[in-house]
Structures are given as structure tokens and as C-alpha cells.
């Protein structure tokens, strides 16, 4: 007897089950697209679609980091505040460097490097507190969420931090230009998504994340360095927040205490809608991408029609999140 013995009936059954699980978010996405087309002919226009995707890409890149954190059984509530503080510090650093470096790409690149470095440091802090300090992720990141938010308010002195106009002009193309008509944020989002999918599925790190999220004890008894893997997920999350911010800063050229508000919840919502389980043990990156795009499309469709108030955006997103989790539970039986 072997695994492959009663193969044929089992395989077909399995294929069906997998389909249902996979198709869920995709089906929702397809329905939304059809709805959008039927409501407004501009929906499929190049401008509308690139706009939706470019706006979704910040949350999307952050949500890909969140997929790793959540798959490994963790949670990071601080990403929205982290984004704000990184944006603020990036702007301050760039403004500060202008006298010595002059206006140009040098300043911008230094700013970008600062953003990614800051993200990494914030991730190290979150991850160290959680793994070495043995404090629950929820508590640690709830704390840093408050710390980061307060820091950006302090740095901006309650107002807005604005990037020097000339530097902002140099930096603008990073958000508004692109390759072959595809804006940079969408390109970076796609690259991060592909990279994330590969890491999640085809590396030991991805496997270990799922193992730890599934059962930390089993992981420990299987000689996995649980703390290090966990720590890495938070560092990765921080770096990806940095990446998202360096695409976000040229859009407005400013940061304030309202930058990135509720991004953490949108990112987590995208992850959950995509089929990753909140308690860990199973995660899929492409699902997160679909989930984030679904959230973006809901807002967009509400803006394109006149029957329902766009102010109900949050309500629709909420319904979708709850539905997604309900469906996940139904599927598991």
C-alpha cells in the first residue's frame, strides 16, 4: 500500500475542494469587476484602473509583510503609525540634507535608504520585544502603534511636515511615472508580491512561518529556531512598510499625524480576505493581493455610482471581511 494507491477518486475530490477554497476571493474579485463595468463604462478605463491599483499598492506592500507575520502566528498593529513616522523622518532627513547635498536624486536616494532602514529598525524592535521579551504581539504592537503615532505628531509639532518643493519635484516621478504606462507603485507592488509568493512557497523560511503559526511546540521540537524566524517576519514587515512609504511620500510630499491612519486594519483585512488564517499556520501571498485589490475596488465602485453614499465604504469593507471569514470556516469542514 502506498500513498498513491486509491489515487483517482481521491484526486478528483481534492481538486474540487481546493477549487472552492481558491476560487472564493477570485470569485469575489470577478463579481466586483463585473459590477464596476455594469455601473460605469469608465471603470475599465486605463486611468481608473491604474489609479485604483496605485492607491492599493501601499496597503498591498504592507499587507504582504503582514501575511508573513500572521502566518507565523503573530500580528503587527503598528504598521500604519510606523508608516507615518517613517514618512515624517524621511522628509526631515531630505530637507536637512539639501544644504550639504543640493537638490537632486542624491537627496532622494538618501531619503529612501533612511525609510527602509527605519522600517527595519522598527521591525527589530517589535520582533525583539515579542520574541526575547516574551510579550504578546498584540500588546507590543499596540504599544508601538501609540509610540509611533505620537512621535510623528511630535516631529510635525502637531501640524504637517512638508518636503522641500524642489526635491518633491525630483521625487514625484516615483509615484506618478512608470514603465510602459504602468506607474512605479504598481510595478513595485507586483515585484514584492511575486517575491513574497516565492519566499512563502519555495523557501524554508516560508515553510517555517507556517509551521510556527500552526504549532509552535512542533516547530521547536523539529529543531526550528522559532524566535529567529518570528523576529525575521517583523523585520521583513518593517522593511516593507519602508518600501511602501518611499512610494507614498512623492504622492503628497508631506506627512502629518493623520498619515497612514487605519492602514494596519486595511492590511490585516486584505490578508484575511485573501484566505490567510488569522491565528496562523496557513498563508498565501496572492490571496492577500486579491484581498487588497478587492478592498480598493469597493471604494472605487462606490465613487463611480450615485445610488449609495461613498461614505458607506467602510461598512462594505467590513461586511466583506466578515463574509470572508465565515466562508473560510464553512470550507474547513
Amino acid at each position: 500500500m502506498s500513498v498513491s494507491a486509491p489515487d483517482i477518486p481521491a484526486k478528483t475530490k481534492r481538486g474540487f475542494r481546493l477549487d472552492l477554497k481558491t476560487v472564493g476571493p477570485l470569485l469575489a474579485l470577478a463579481l466586483l469587476v463585473l459590477l464596476g463595468i455594469s455601473l460605469n463604462e469608465n471603470f475599465l478605463s486605463y486611468n481608473n484602473l491604474t489609479n485604483v491599483l496605485a492607491r492599493s499598492s501601499f496597503i498591498g506592500i504592507i499587507a504582504i509583510g503582514a501575511t508573513f507575520v500572521i502566518t507565523a502566528g503573530g500580528l503587527d498593529l503598528s504598521v500604519g503609525s510606523m508608516a507615518a513616522v517613517i514618512a515624517g523622518v524621511m522628509i526631515m532627513v531630505m530637507n536637512w540634507l539639501i544644504p550639504s547635498m543640493g537638490i537632486g536624486w542624491g537627496v532622494v536616494i538618501a531619503g529612501m535608504a533612511t525609510g527602509i532602514l527605519l522600517g527595519g529598525v522598527a521591525g527589530v524592535f517589535n520582533g525583539t520585544m515579542i520574541t526575547r521579551g516574551r510579550i504578546e504581539a498584540f500588546i507590543v504592537t499596540l504599544g508601538t502603534m501609540g509610540i509611533f503615532r505620537s512621535l510623528v505628531t511630535f516631529l510635525a509639532d502637531g501640524g504637517t511636515l512638508s518636503l522641500n518643493f524642489q526635491v518633491a519635484d525630483v521625487y514625484r516621478p516615483v509615484y506618478y511615472a512608470g514603465v510602459l504606462g504602468v506607474p512605479w507603485p504598481i510595478i513595485v507592488f507586483a515585484l514584492v508580491a511575486i517575491g513574497g509568493e516565492v519566499v512563502m512557497r519555495y523557501t524554508a523560511f516560508g515553510r517555517y512561518c507556517a509551521a510556527i503559526g500552526s504549532n509552535e511546540q512542533v516547530a521547536r521540537y523539529s529543531s526550528i529556531n522559532v524566535d529567529n524566524v518570528r523576529l525575521l517576519t517583523y523585520i521583513l514587515q518593517g522593511i516593507l512598510v519602508g518600501v511602501a512609504v518611499l512610494l507614498y511620500v512623492p504622492r503628497l510630499g508631506s506627512a502629518s499625524s493623520t498619515t497612514g491612519v487605519l492602514w494596519e486594519l486595511e492590511a490585516i483585512a486584505g490578508v484575511i480576505i485573501g484566505g490567510t488564517t488569522l491565528k496562523g499556520g496557513y498563508g498565501r501571498i496572492w490571496g492577500t493581493v486579491v484581498g487588497v485589490v478587492i478592498l480598493g475596488l469597493i471604494g472605487n465602485i462606490l465613487n463611480l455610482q450615485s445610488l449609495i453614499s461613498p461614505y458607506l465604504n467602510g461598512a462594505f469593507q467590513g461586511v466583506i471581511i466578515i463574509l470572508a471569514v465565515l466562508l473560510q470556516r464553512g470550507r474547513r469542514t
Partner: peptide
């Protein structure tokens, strides 16, 4: 509890 990941495959 410590040996196998029950939600995963072989």
C-alpha cells in the same frame, strides 16, 4: 501537541 502539524499534509 509537539510532533506533527495537524493541519498540514504528509
Amino acid at each position: 501537541g509537539k510532533g506533527l502539524l495537524l493541519n498540514m499534509g504528509l
